[in-house]
C-alpha cells in the first residue's frame, strides 16, 4: 500500500512537471503571442545581460516593437548579434518587425533584448518584470525567468 502511494506521488509529480514545461507561460497582447521568455543567469560582476523570447503574430497586420522597459536595467533595447566576415557584431535593431503569420525568435547568437546598466543581479532561479510595447498591439508586462540553460 505504501509503495502504491509513493508511486502515485512520484507519477503525479512527473505529470505536473511535464505539464509545467508544456504549458509554459504564454502572454497574449492583441494578435500577438509571446512565449519562452528567459534571461541567462550571469555573474554578479556582469554589467549587461540579454532577454530572449518568441513573439508570434497571429493577426493579419504587421506589428513592431516600439519600446521596452524593465526595472532590471537602465536601458533595454533590441539588438542583433550578426556574424560579419567572421566577426560577431552587435547592431541596434531599430525597427523590429513581426510579420503577420510569422514569429520573431530571439535566441542566443541572434536577436535579443540587451539589458544595459543592470540594476540588479541576474541570479539563476529568480525572475523580474519587463514591459514590452508594440506599435499596434499595445503593451504587456512579462515575467522574465532567469536560468542557466
Amino acid at each position: 500500500m505504501k509503495k502504491f502511494f509513493m508511486l502515485t506521488v512520484v507519477s503525479l509529480t512527473l505529470v505536473l512537471a511535464t505539464a509545467g514545461t508544456v504549458f509554459a507561460t504564454e502572454y497574449k497582447v492583441g494578435e500577438l503571442t509571446i512565449s519562452d521568455v528567459w534571461s541567462r543567469a550571469s555573474p554578479s560582476v556582469a554589467k549587461a545581460g540579454a532577454v530572449y523570447m518568441t513573439i508570434t503574430n497571429n493577426g493579419a497586420m504587421m506589428d513592431m516593437i516600439s519600446g521596452i522597459k524593465t526595472s532590471m536595467a537602465g536601458k533595454a533595447m533590441v539588438h542583433e548579434s550578426k556574424m560579419v566576415d567572421g566577426v560577431m557584431k552587435m547592431e541596434h535593431a531599430m525597427h523590429v518587425m513581426i510579420k503577420p503569420g510569422e514569429a520573431l525568435t530571439m535566441e542566443p547568437g541572434g536577436f535579443h533584448v540587451m539589458l544595459m546598466k543592470l540594476t540588479g543581479e541576474l541570479t539563476d532561479g529568480t525572475s523580474f518584470p519587463l514591459t514590452i510595447e508594440f506599435k499596434n498591439a499595445g503593451s504587456v508586462e512579462l515575467t522574465v525567468n532567469v536560468k542557466k540553460k
Binding site: A46, G49, A50, S81, M90, G109, M114
Partner: peptide
C-alpha cells in the same frame, strides 16, 4: 569581454 550580453555568456 565581460560586458558582452549575448555571445560570450552563451
Amino acid at each position: 569581454y565581460t560586458w558582452c550580453p549575448d555571445v560570450c555568456p552563451t
